[in-house]
Design a binder for these strands. Sequence first.
DNA 1: TAATAATCGAGACGGTACGTCGCGTCTTCTG
DNA 2: CAGAAGACGCGACGTACCGTCTCGATTATTA
Lengths: 211, 211, 211, 211
Amino acid sequence: MPPTEQQNRPAEHRRGRPRSEAVERSIVEAVVKLLEEGVPLTQVSIERVARTAGVGKATIYRRWKGKEELFIDVLKDIEPVDPELPGTSVRDDLVALLESLRRRGLAKRSSALLYNVFAQMQNYPELWRAYHDTVVEARRRTGMEVVRRGIASGEIRSDLAPDLVNDLIVGPMLLRTVLRPYAELEEGLSARVVDALLEGLAPRGSERQHG
Amino acid sequence: MPPTEQQNRPAEHRRGRPRSEAVERSIVEAVVKLLEEGVPLTQVSIERVARTAGVGKATIYRRWKGKEELFIDVLKDIEPVDPELPGTSVRDDLVALLESLRRRGLAKRSSALLYNVFAQMQNYPELWRAYHDTVVEARRRTGMEVVRRGIASGEIRSDLAPDLVNDLIVGPMLLRTVLRPYAELEEGLSARVVDALLEGLAPRGSERQHG
Amino acid sequence: MPPTEQQNRPAEHRRGRPRSEAVERSIVEAVVKLLEEGVPLTQVSIERVARTAGVGKATIYRRWKGKEELFIDVLKDIEPVDPELPGTSVRDDLVALLESLRRRGLAKRSSALLYNVFAQMQNYPELWRAYHDTVVEARRRTGMEVVRRGIASGEIRSDLAPDLVNDLIVGPMLLRTVLRPYAELEEGLSARVVDALLEGLAPRGSERQHG
Amino acid sequence: MPPTEQQNRPAEHRRGRPRSEAVERSIVEAVVKLLEEGVPLTQVSIERVARTAGVGKATIYRRWKGKEELFIDVLKDIEPVDPELPGTSVRDDLVALLESLRRRGLAKRSSALLYNVFAQMQNYPELWRAYHDTVVEARRRTGMEVVRRGIASGEIRSDLAPDLVNDLIVGPMLLRTVLRPYAELEEGLSARVVDALLEGLAPRGSERQHG
DNA sequence: TAATAATCGAGACGGTACGTCGCGTCTTCTG
DNA sequence: CAGAAGACGCGACGTACCGTCTCGATTATTA
């Protein structure tokens, strides 16, 4: 379950008493529980997690190098899986994609951890890299796939770099999640974003004037 | 300089030795210095700032309620002022706006603090509110102003909510700054984003097919 | 009161808030209290002392380098002062000297610490040296003084090394204190020891037969 | 070898793999090795002994209840056997007895353990009792035997309690071993002690003056 | 010119958490 | 079954910061 583990034992045979998976779970669940109780992340200390999980501190340090590594695993536990894409049209797929982000943004504990990952970015580049590679990049790949399909099918312009297109689509939802957390991630937002992007911000027809 | 000060003395006359502005500056500069030396934010403790600035801890607490309030002021010191808008066209103004964000994203210390503000968001809502109100909202107002001008001038569609338009423009740059910090905030990016948005992702003409 | 302090500040002017003597006392008293409650020395942890004294751990470490240094000071607090010597005769002075040792041996907390000092002897030679110099040697000096007076007055043979004489007198009481702690340090023991030593173990008169 | 063993299996037949005596030896030898390397007793942890002996911790706990019980057995391994008494005269026997103590005091590892036994006296009374009964009392019995022989033969006064006499003889050597470990346990000390005791500290003849 | 009062650097103070180590028990696999 | 290995809950270790609190020493203003 926690593939990010820093001190993973090799796959081959290991001697001595094996680590208990139950303990592993109870630790991660303790963190989740604390977050759901509204405990601020800063106050989610290893000490407290150990107490909550009914576990020795060493047991935690045996598995994770510190608070951050632990949180990564928790994050993976929490992050929603790859969204179901209807496949009816590229436009609908993009809407579905944004919808999953919107729902993620509405989940309090998810955001809480996301913010913390941001905060630790400079301190633990490897950590950020880990989060980026598994969570961010995964989602990005999905997006790129849809975009490329759109280009192939003619639904999306072929003269734009696919990753730029992807960023144009995902960026606004991230902004609302991150910069305006008290604001509305209102229903229907995803569709509005996609449609506006597809049609363009400038008016259609002969009356275009910029440039 | 620090208008966020929580424990401001009344404007009227005060007795006793007045607070030294030099001390104030040296504290903020100490934080900046540490950040520039690459010290992770987590390790920028009040204790250490005091040591670096050659100042007593109480002197810091006399001015700011805690690490976070102090950081806000540092942030304001660091954040670039409102961007110069050329005013030649709305499109050029939007590009200028994004350019200022792009340059901000390239400044290491700026990002460092930004991430930390994110991290403290849930712990200190008031703090986030402060940052939001002064920094985020200020920038947002500028953007909205440009957007509204574009709608009025016909450069931007009038059937879209202005704040949605603003988010569509700013979002992608935020995404690159925040989620792909090792990636390219390459020259010319701002223009590409604005132009792609204005024209739309879907091909122009009769061949449009999404439902 | 604690002249053994390892981290003594120089006598000259020191800056910052001065250390509280009250705190110092409360720490030492906490140790004594625990000992009197019968808490085994091994379980008298710094952590527990801090809790008992209502004091932060750092406050203890600021004054003493560790458990052992602290105990030295406690020991000095507990050890009885120099015994009152009647001065009527050297024999009576010796009895008084042993009496003070006997009473010390009967005091539980005193013995507890004494044993611990023994145990730490090899680990912390400096520590033992400190205890030796202040407690052991002080007592020894007193004894030697009496012995020398006895030699001068003719009460004690002049052909024996004074320190050997002193050891002959003190040794038996130490033995009973240390090796037979459950045994009797019965009343009148001191006099019996002194008298037996003065008169000798071999019978007086013509019947002596050893080589 | 370890007759103190707390968890001895019944003498009758046991099933399964029998305990390895080699393992037993290697554990005790590991302790001795560590002591000879000058490792402070406090740092001779079960954990470390197991590591040094190349043995599982449980294997140690299967044989001894804890560090202290183990040390007792080590002590018995180290303590010199009953001294050879020449038997030529009681005086010579006493000298031989003290000599064995003197040599013990000169052996570093022996003293180290002795001190530790003292330290644990209050914590583990049973432990002390065990050490007392086997080591201390054994030596004491030997001494008492000699003393009684001396009384019978007229070499020692008959009006003194034998155990008092024994303590008078052994005490001084214990004192030098324990309280003045850096001091001289010089050659010839034993004889000097015995002779001084037999003859008495007060001058012989008509000039005696104490009351 | 003094008295008064808030400032300053320094650092002690009661706390909480850190990450490590040893305790004695337990659980796994190998001989 | 014994044995090595090592996980486990526990609790102490000594350190670092937290935010508050004295200290003596500096400045200002007010009397």
